[in-house]
Simulated assay, not measured.
Amino acid sequence: MGFKDSWKQLKWGDIVTLEYGKALRGYKEKTSGYPVYGTNGQIGFHNEFLSKTPGVIIGRKGAYRGVHFSKKPFYVIDTAFYIKPRNLDELDLRWAYYELLTKDINSMDSGSAIPSTSRNDFYALPVFLPPLEEQKSIANILSSLDEKIETNNQINIKLEEIAQAIFKQWFIDFEFPNEDGKPYKSSGGEMVESELGMIPRGWKVGKLLEIAEILMGQSPKSEFYNTEEDGLPFHQGVSNFGYRYPTHSTFCTQALRVAKEGSILISVRAPVGRLNIADSELIIGRGLGAINSKNNCNSYLYYLLQKTFEVEDRFGSGTIFNSITKKELEHIKILIPRAELMDSFDNIVRNLDEQILIYTKEIRVLSNLRDTLLPKLLSGEIRVPAD
């Protein structure tokens, strides 16, 4: 049986209405409660909701208007719509969310001065609607992948928080283990004066170049760029930076400046100080630098740079846009602990960083699988038994 024999050919206006969001104050101060959504996704929490069930949110105003799903009751502000089914016995909202991900919402423009989603265009959009049980089966497959991806993301965040907490305890609060395994400063560890304040004896104020090697990027000619994965991944700046690791969309066959796998990538112009890590050899353009530890302590160096550049554009200069030179990077003042302490930290935290990389690679596999299955399941090319 072809899918057209059991799927109804309808228009979205036959099965849903687009409800307007409402203006709301105070949601940005909230950190718990019901999620609040706008054009580009969740923007906070509030103690009120507009929809008492999970549901689909569609951006209404702005250059980019996305489709989002809330697993719990939610609020929508006035830059977005939310879907209200005409018949809950006919439509699974999770299926509706995935179906709408295959559509170009941004093309449904009302023609106003500010780009705005046209309700009439949306209502006229055709849809092939499977039976409810088949909708649920499709949504179960896709949502199980999304849930695993989200679980991995949350694990990665927790692992990094653990590493950051250890770094703060050891190198900011100076509570690293002393010879007896007790917190150094609070156990009476000797502190001495420095130009950066009181520091543990044996530490010193130095420059980044004393513990790190810095390679500045150089951009090949555009004739060597491609999207067919010929050559090495190429990154000009931060446009493809992700959580920890960049995604690769451009490749290059002219390798002028190559960051080796594991190098800390740092943006050196507009903005200065954003970080990622190279998950493979890659070519860096003029907007990036690659930094590596001189004593094989890249995990320590990564968290040091995180702290040093926690405020972007803190360093650098420029009349048109901010940038930083290699010399300026090399001469940034830092505290340099004893070498054995950096090494001890790295031995502990390197395991956490390796786990983050493993989970990140799994996220990519799952994401590719979901993105491959999504259009095939929603078009009926791949059928799912209702049971």
Rank of each mutant, 00 (worst) to 15 (best):
P35G: 03
D109I: 13
L129H: 02
Q9W: 03
F69T: 00
Y359P: 01
I166C: 06
F315G: 08
C252D: 11
N276Y: 04
D89G: 09
M198G: 00
G206W: 07
F234M: 04
K168N: 14
F224G: 04
L288I: 04
R94W: 08
F45T: 05
P130R: 02
N140S: 14
L125W: 05
E340K: 11
Y123I: 10
Y75T: 03
P200M: 05
Y184L: 09
K307S: 10
Q236E: 07
F49E: 04
Q254D: 14
T250M: 05
P337A: 11
L125H: 06
L329G: 06
I57G: 05
N368M: 06
P54G: 07
A278E: 05
N87W: 13
F69C: 00
S186P: 07
E133V: 04
D279R: 03
S249V: 12
Q236M: 05
N120Y: 08
F74P: 03
W12C: 09
V36G: 06
I211F: 06
E150I: 07
A165I: 07
N106G: 13
T319P: 01
N156G: 06
W95Y: 15
T17F: 13
I334R: 10
N120K: 14
S70R: 02
A139I: 04
L378W: 02
T325W: 03
P35H: 05
W7F: 08
I358H: 09
A163F: 11
K260R: 13
R25S: 15
Y303A: 01
S194Y: 09
Y225N: 13
K103N: 07
Q135T: 10
T250P: 00
I332C: 10
L232V: 12
S323Y: 09
S116M: 15
G289I: 04
E190K: 15
L24H: 08
P271N: 05
T250A: 02
K333Q: 15
F315Q: 09
K333N: 12
Y64S: 06
N226L: 04
Y359D: 03
G13D: 09
S323K: 08
G231S: 03
S323V: 01
T31S: 12
E210Y: 01
Q42V: 03
G189V: 11
K11T: 12
I264D: 04
I266C: 09
S222A: 15
L341P: 09
N120A: 14
Q9G: 01
L374Y: 00
W7C: 07
A63C: 07
T39A: 15
F81V: 10
Y34C: 06
I332V: 10
G44V: 04
R383G: 06
S51N: 13
Q306N: 13
G111Q: 12
K185M: 14
L91E: 10
F81K: 08
D387R: 12
E99W: 12
D5P: 00
P54V: 10
E19C: 11
